[in-house]
Amino acid sequence: MLLVFACLPQLPRLFGVFSAPKPTEAPASYPEGIWPLRFSANAFRHTRRFTSLFLLGMILDTLMT
Results as ranks from 00 to 15, higher is better:
1 M>K: 09
1 M>A: 12
1 M>F: 11
2 L>T: 08
4 V>G: 05
4 V>N: 05
4 V>E: 01
5 F>T: 06
6 A>T: 10
6 A>F: 12
8 L>A: 14
9 P>T: 09
9 P>D: 05
9 P>L: 01
10 Q>F: 12
11 L>H: 02
12 P>D: 00
12 P>A: 03
13 R>T: 12
14 L>Q: 09
15 F>N: 04
15 F>T: 13
16 G>H: 10
17 V>I: 15
19 S>R: 13
20 A>M: 07
20 A>L: 02
21 P>V: 10
21 P>W: 03
23 P>K: 03
23 P>A: 12
24 T>A: 15
26 A>N: 06
26 A>H: 03
27 P>T: 01
27 P>H: 04
29 S>K: 11
30 Y>W: 15
30 Y>G: 00
32 E>L: 13
33 G>V: 06
33 G>L: 08
34 I>Q: 08
35 W>L: 04
36 P>N: 02
37 L>V: 04
37 L>K: 07
38 R>P: 00
39 F>T: 11
41 A>M: 11
42 N>S: 10
43 A>W: 10
46 H>W: 13
46 H>C: 08
46 H>F: 15
47 T>W: 13
49 R>G: 05
50 F>M: 03
51 T>S: 15
52 S>D: 06
53 L>H: 02
54 F>Y: 13
55 L>H: 05
57 G>N: 03
58 M>R: 04
58 M>W: 06
58 M>L: 15
58 M>G: 05
60 L>D: 00
61 D>C: 08
61 D>E: 14
62 T>R: 10
62 T>L: 14
63 L>C: 06
64 M>S: 14
64 M>Y: 07
64 M>L: 11
